[in-house]
Computed example of a mutant assay.
Amino acid sequence: MPVIRVHASTAIPREAQLALKRSFGDAIATVPGKSEQWLMCTFDEQAPMFFAGDDTQPCALVEVSVFARTQIAAEVWEELTGLLTPAVSEALGIDPARIYVEYRTTAHFGWNGSNF
């Protein structure tokens, strides 16, 4: 049950959404037991955003939420950041130094009217 949300200060055209969905689908397999089969992607475009007090250059926040009942190794997140950042940078033309990636895990996740 991974979810990847992209909040960007820029537009996210359909072609970019499809490219990101493909990249995220490949990248999520880095997390043990996760695959594109359960991946949900959301895109929030043209969000008012400031990075380092500046809103004149584009920036993005990528939120990754994962259902997990055990600890996920820091190396997994490091590898995932190394895959997600260039994908967002290339698709949206945002400097990698202006992209944050945030990770969250939860032991409770609902789907189809009940919880796992």
Rank of each mutant, 00 (worst) to 15 (best):
M1P: 04
M1G: 11
P2C: 13
V3F: 08
I4V: 15
R5Q: 14
V6P: 00
V6T: 09
V6C: 05
H7P: 00
A8D: 04
A8F: 04
A8S: 14
T10L: 02
A11S: 09
R14D: 11
A16R: 02
A16H: 05
A16Y: 05
Q17W: 06
Q17H: 03
Q17K: 15
A19Y: 01
L20N: 10
R22S: 15
R22Q: 14
R22T: 15
S23E: 15
S23A: 15
G25A: 09
D26K: 14
I28V: 13
T30Q: 08
T30I: 05
T30M: 10
V31F: 12
P32V: 10
P32C: 13
G33R: 03
G33L: 05
G33T: 09
S35N: 03
S35I: 05
L39Y: 10
L39N: 07
M40V: 14
M40A: 15
C41L: 05
T42P: 01
D44N: 12
E45G: 13
A47N: 06
A47W: 04
P48W: 13
P48H: 14
G53H: 04
G53N: 08
D54A: 11
D55W: 08
D55Q: 09
D55F: 07
D55T: 01
T56F: 01
T56Y: 00
T56R: 04
P58E: 11
P58D: 12
P58M: 08
C59I: 04
C59K: 02
C59L: 03
L61C: 13
L61S: 13
L61R: 11
E63G: 09
S65I: 00
F67N: 00
A68W: 01
A68K: 03
A68Y: 02
A68V: 03
R69C: 12
R69G: 13
R69Y: 06
T70L: 06
Q71A: 15
Q71E: 15
I72P: 08
A73T: 01
A74N: 03
A74M: 00
E75F: 01
E78G: 02
E78H: 02
E79P: 00
T81G: 14
G82R: 01
G82E: 03
L83G: 03
P86A: 10
A87D: 09
A87E: 06
V88Y: 02
V88K: 02
E90F: 00
E90S: 13
A91Y: 02
A91N: 02
A91M: 01
L92V: 06
G93W: 08
I94P: 08
D95L: 03
P96M: 15
P96T: 15
P96R: 14
P96Y: 15
R98Y: 13
I99V: 10
Y100W: 02
V101Y: 08
V101D: 11
E102W: 04
E102Q: 12
T105K: 05
T105N: 06
T106F: 05
T106I: 01
A107R: 03
H108T: 06
H108N: 05
W111A: 13
W111D: 07
W111Q: 04
N112Y: 05
N112P: 00
G113Q: 04
S114G: 14
N115D: 10
F116E: 07
